[in-house]
Nucleic acid binder design. Sequence first.
DNA 1: TATTGTTATACTCTATAACTATA
DNA 2: TATAGTTATAGAGTATAACAATA
Lengths: 147, 147
Amino acid sequence: MSNNALPTISDDLFRLVIRLNSKIFKSQELFKSFPLPPSHVKVIFFLMHHGSAPISNIAEHLSISKPNMTPIIDKLIQEDLVMRCEDPNDRRVILIEKTEKAAKLFENHKQLIKQILAEKLEVLSEEEIAKLHEAILVMMPLLEKIQ
Amino acid sequence: MSNNALPTISDDLFRLVIRLNSKIFKSQELFKSFPLPPSHVKVIFFLMHHGSAPISNIAEHLSISKPNMTPIIDKLIQEDLVMRCEDPNDRRVILIEKTEKAAKLFENHKQLIKQILAEKLEVLSEEEIAKLHEAILVMMPLLEKIQ
DNA sequence: TATTGTTATACTCTATAACTATA
DNA sequence: TATAGTTATAGAGTATAACAATA
């Protein structure tokens, strides 16, 4: 499609993301509140959304080089957050699976983040909250269509 | 204020940010398209929004330890992206100032990001684009009030 | 005495190439 | 031969403590 409003909206979307990231959701802080380095958090996050997966698969999706997956997985196993499982269909493959401990850690962390968000939103009036919520609900399905 | 919709909206806001970051704005990709390591990009980004600033100030805002600022600034000077200036009021302080080259690099990169965003948005219909834009414009001033 | 920026150093995270075992 | 995962290793990024100069 051709839409002459595209430059304007992409500009506003850019500013929105910048603002969300700097004001609401400093990814630095989120990673630091986790007791694990970023790459390890990413792996758990990936497993949370994709279930068990081969190491190569995880590495590719997260842009982590394959050799670095070995020490990452080793450490996650040491922390009892992940398990190595054999793939019955291909004996070369090692499937990585999250433990219950990882699921709980992830869930706790999500709750903590949401609580922080809720606290930040408290400066808004009830009417403003309602407007914000409506805008979010409008955006969600539209973003779903992208990419 | 007390609002019983807060848990719901913080949940939706959380999901929105996750979606924006994974679908629209993979920060990994953005940093990688820059020919500099993340911490260096952050410093330039900071200077873009704050003008010149003392090293300690930059370090504190970006959660970079002070000793690491020295090699980062050294490298940025080497790339002609930044300058060390004396502070006439306090001879202990070294003010870091961006060069024109940094400003141009930053501006070019911003344009590139916006172009990528515009391309992603092309899958939406004109009506959807308008709805998305309106939602963004509603959110912006509300987010401005937060924190 | 407190603060700014630096040096020294060790630790973690990462990337590349070469290896093994399976397919 | 191609692929999955590993080992070895060098490099980049980071954090901590101790230091010199200035306030």
